[in-house]
Design a protein around this nucleic acid. Structure first.
Length: 423
RNA sequence: GGAGGGAUGGCCGAGCGGUCUAAGGCGGCUGUCUUGAAAACAGCUGUGGGGUUACACCCACCGGGGGUUCGAAUCCCUCUCCCUCCGCCA
């Protein structure tokens, strides 16, 4: 949620912002109109409430029964008018809230203008595209041949786009998760284990609802939703909290599976484990003071890069353009690793400064050390990293001519003596 | 799943239709006193909204939502969460 004062004071800025995000700018005018109605109604209703409060107080002291009845009668009709105005106010407020809930965050001035992902900017590439003296295989060939990925079993028990990891494959993914969590701990993040299901309010605070309703899995009888990312429960940790300034910044990291409905098009990314309704991810999350969020963003990008570098993967950093950054983000860098088997760059991380957008929805504030009014925090999130794709990159980059896969050095402590995965 | 008991300001805790403008205490802040500190004393001490150049002032908030009433922390309905006991369960 953005600050409605921004729309009041700088409607043109917001219109331009929506256009830069390839969205319709007309909600701005609707918001302005409803906001005006809302304030007019508040003023009317509050004048009446002040009157009722005062007269009711006088009634309690009245001795004269007749005069008392007259005042009671008068206040009864005032009460009716208040009820009618409040009803109208509620209606206007709801309309306003609905509109505001669909207005995205203001992009950072450094976010480049652009229409879609083609306008994203490559900031840097780290490492060389590896050369193989044999034809590197894609993971959908490597995995089944090694007996570590079973697509048929996934389809059998759940359906298309699900798979089963087996033996060293399952273990390798677990090693990746454990190594990443330990790395982030060394980088200063506190590990959290959160519920994988949350209530609707939590999704609202994180900005997933109402906009991404269609993308979420929900229990059919209770208000329980499967998390689409650990960002959601981590944001939820400080809903309605006022934290001490001294306790900021808060760095959190969490592993969760992620569940996304995603209407996936038939022809796209169908092969392998790149895209599915369920995937594992290690997430980084920061709550901080507004003035600290640009530096926190740089840190988080560096921390995500370290994860790729630690695995010895070639990667590049992209800055997303206005047409491609997420709904709540002001600035986003994606990190992509090179997968030689499928011959493409795979997005394994997306790091965003969400500024106060989630904090306003979540009512997540901090108390300045000087004791002043509570202020909204800034929040940042970033993958560190997304699992199936990291697994793909490891398998495809570390494959040998004979189809075996060398386990990266850093993961070996979790592999139970398996240094090379063989059929 | 069943029965009962709870939810009040940063914390503890009173209030159970009308000086609630929420008692009292603790904590915190400021001041007086003091060389400094402690003690004592005095004052202040939340959130959101409306309004104002800024004040003033006004409205709402006693777990959430709805209702009764001229008037609700207080009465009614409903939901959530916590505690105790029973049942079930990895």
């Amino acid at each position: 949620m953005i600050d409605i004062n921004l729309i009041r004071e700088k409607p043109d800025t917001i219109r331009q912002m929506l256009l830069a995000r390839q969205m319709d700018a007309s909600p701005v005018d609707q918001v302005l109109q409803l906001d005006e109605q809302r304030r007019a109604l508040i003023q009317q209703t509050e004048v009446l409430k002040a009157e009722r409060n005062q007269v009711s107080k006088e009634i309690s002291k009245m001795k004269d029964a007749a005069a008392r009845q007259i005042s009671i009668g008068a206040m009864r009709s005032v009460g009716d008018r208040i009820a009618a105005l409040d009803e109208e106010l509620r209606r206007v407020q709801n309309q306003l809230d609905d509109l505001m809930a669909f207005i995205p965050n203001l992009p950072d001035p450094r976010t480049p203008l652009g229409k879609d992902e083609h306008d994203n900017v490559v900031i840097k590439t780290v490492g060389e595209i590896p050369r193989f003296d044999f034809e590197p295989k894609p993971h959908w060939d490597l995995g089944p041949a090694l007996g570590i990925i079973d697509f048929e079993q996934g389809v059998k028990i759940t359906g298309t786009r699900f798979y089963v990891l087996s033996g060293a494959g399952a273990r390798l993914q677990r090693a990746l998760i454990a190594w990443m969590l330990d790395l982030h701990a060394r980088q200063g993040y506190t590990e959290k284990y959160t519920p994988f299901m949350v209530k609707g309010d939590t999704l609202m605070a994180a900005g997933q609802l109402p906009k991404f309703y269609d993308n979420l899995y929900k229990d059919h009888e209770e208000d329980l939703w499967m998390v689409p990312t650990a960002e959601v429960p981590l944001t939820g940790l400080h809903i309605n909290d006022i934290l001490d300034e001294a306790s900021l910044p808060r760095y959190y990291t969490a592993y969760t599976p992620c569940f996304r409905r995603e209407k996936m098009s038939a022809g796209r990314d169908v092969r392998g484990i790149k895209r599915g309704h369920q995937f594992d991810k290690v997430e980084m999350y920061i709550f901080c003071k507004p003035e600290d969020s640009p530096a926190a963003f740089e840190k988080m990008v560096a921390d995500a890069e370290q994860t790729c570098a630690g695995l010895g993967l070639t990667y590049r950093v992209l800055q997303l353009c206005t047409g491609d950054i997420g709904f709540g983000s002001s600035i986003t860098y994606d990190i992509e690793v090179w997968a030689p088997g499928c011959g493409e760059w795979l997005e394994v991380s997306s790091v965003s400064n969400v500024t106060d957008f989630q904090a306003r929805r979540a009512n997540a504030k901090y108390r300045p050390a000087d004791g002043g009014r509570a202020r909204l925090m800034h929040t940042l999130n970033g993958s560190g990293l997304g699992m199936p794709r990291t697994l793909i990159a490891v398998l495809e980059n570390y494959q040998q001519p004979d189809g075996s896969v060398v386990v990266p050095e850093v993961l070996r402590p979790w592999m139970g003596g398996i240094d090379v995965i063989r059929p």
